[in-house]
Simulated scan of single mutants.
Amino acid sequence: MTTSLHIVCPHCDAVNRVPDERLGEGPTCGKCQLGLFTGQPVDLSNARFQKHIERSDIPVLVDFWAPWCGPCRTMAPFYAQAAQRLEPRVRVVKVDTEANQDLGARYAIRSIPTLALFRGGREVARQPGAMDAGNILAWVQQQLNR
């Protein structure tokens, strides 16, 4: 029996059902026809954030950051490298806490950058501080194996 997963489109936010075994085959959105996985972090605003964490059946890794933050800018290319390796099994997103202050407040983000991993709409792990791609990948894998 084939298991289908709900995947939120990074372009139009439509919820798509994708058979689990087809995740790695470059699935496209049924609404906008663009790829469901880009290999790049998806920038999310307040309006889009909840849909992505609540409706995605795959884990969602969030980088809470700000443009004025030096460590955030240093970590950004490593985070993008990690996105290439984590997708399609993990959705990788970014939230600018300067532009989306209520999200930072809602999730009690006290330092940036902070990574948070969500499953089924709930935060399951958090890691503050800048990391390189290898450490991001190792941390995510450790959390997924729990």
Rank of each mutant, 00 (worst) to 15 (best):
V124I: 15
P88W: 01
A130V: 07
W139I: 09
G104A: 14
E54W: 04
K94M: 09
I136Y: 02
D102Q: 14
A82W: 00
C12V: 10
T38R: 12
Q81N: 06
K51D: 11
G129T: 08
L137H: 02
C12Y: 07
Y107F: 15
C12W: 04
E123Q: 15
Q142H: 13
A14D: 14
R73W: 01
A138T: 12
C72L: 09
R55M: 14
L61P: 00
E123Y: 03
C32D: 12
P10H: 06
V15M: 07
D96H: 05
I112A: 06
T114F: 00
E54M: 08
A47K: 13
D57W: 00
D57R: 04
E98P: 00
E54N: 14
V93M: 08
Q127S: 13
R119E: 13
A99F: 03
F37W: 05
V15L: 09
V15R: 12
T97F: 03
A130N: 04
C12P: 03
A83H: 02
L137I: 01
D63N: 14
S111F: 08
G26P: 00
P27S: 03
D20C: 07
R119H: 09
A138R: 12
G35N: 11
Q143W: 00
L44D: 06
N135K: 12
R126M: 12
H11A: 10
H11T: 11
R106S: 10
Y79I: 01
Q84A: 15
R106D: 10
L44M: 05
Q33I: 13
R91M: 14
V42P: 02
Q127R: 11
A99L: 13
Y79A: 03
I53R: 01
Q40E: 15
E54T: 12
T97P: 07
R89I: 08
M131H: 02
E25A: 15
D96G: 02
A130K: 00
F49I: 11
A138N: 10
I112N: 03
I112S: 04
P77K: 01
A76Y: 01
P113I: 02
G120K: 08
P10A: 06
D63T: 03
Q127V: 07
W65N: 03
P88G: 05
S45L: 12
V140K: 00
E21Y: 08
E98M: 10
W68S: 07
G35R: 11
R119T: 09
E54L: 10
S56C: 11
E54H: 10
C72S: 10
Q142N: 14
P59I: 06
S111N: 13
F37K: 05
Q33T: 15
T28N: 09
A82V: 01
D20E: 14
Q141S: 12
K94S: 13
E98Y: 13
F37H: 07
F49T: 11
A99V: 01
I53F: 00
M131W: 00
N16V: 09
Q141E: 15
Q81P: 05
Q84E: 13
Q33S: 15
H52E: 12
R85G: 04
